[in-house]
Simulated scan of single mutants.
Amino acid sequence: MGKHHPKLLNNLETKRREANLTQAQLSKFAGVSRKSINAIENGMYVPSTVLSLKIARTLGCSVEDLFRLPRAES
């Protein structure tokens, strides 16, 4: 009843900080704007598969390390 359920949960900010990268640095490697990285970290934007793979490659992790679906409610 009016509960907000995110479509995608992400660990991007944590992984980016572990890699010692700023949003600007990561955005350059991934070929997108810093605003896009910020929007993904804040759950406002769901990245494409290609962008998710580029970010994961840059951070040396899997896409599943970065993003996951919320648990399905039964």
Rank of each mutant, 00 (worst) to 15 (best):
M1Q: 15
G2E: 15
G2D: 15
K3C: 12
P6C: 08
P6I: 08
K7W: 07
L8E: 07
L9K: 13
N10W: 04
N11S: 08
T14V: 14
T14D: 11
T14W: 11
K15H: 12
R16A: 03
R16I: 04
R17A: 11
R17C: 11
R17S: 11
R17G: 07
E18T: 09
E18W: 06
N20L: 10
L21P: 01
T22A: 06
Q23H: 06
A24Y: 08
A24H: 09
Q25E: 14
Q25G: 07
Q25L: 05
L26D: 06
S27T: 08
S27G: 07
K28P: 00
F29A: 14
F29N: 08
G31C: 11
G31W: 10
G31V: 10
S33P: 09
S33Q: 12
R34E: 12
R34P: 03
R34D: 07
K35A: 14
S36V: 13
S36I: 10
I37M: 06
I37D: 02
I37Y: 02
N38C: 12
A39W: 02
E41M: 03
Y45R: 13
Y45M: 11
P47A: 02
S48W: 02
S48Y: 00
T49N: 07
V50E: 14
L51V: 08
S52E: 02
S52M: 06
L53I: 03
K54W: 01
I55T: 01
I55H: 00
I55D: 00
A56Q: 03
A56H: 03
A56E: 01
T58N: 06
L59K: 03
G60A: 04
C61R: 05
C61N: 04
V63D: 01
V63C: 01
E64F: 06
R68H: 12
R68V: 08
P70D: 11
P70Y: 09
P70L: 10
R71G: 13
R71A: 15
R71K: 14
A72P: 12
A72K: 15
S74F: 15
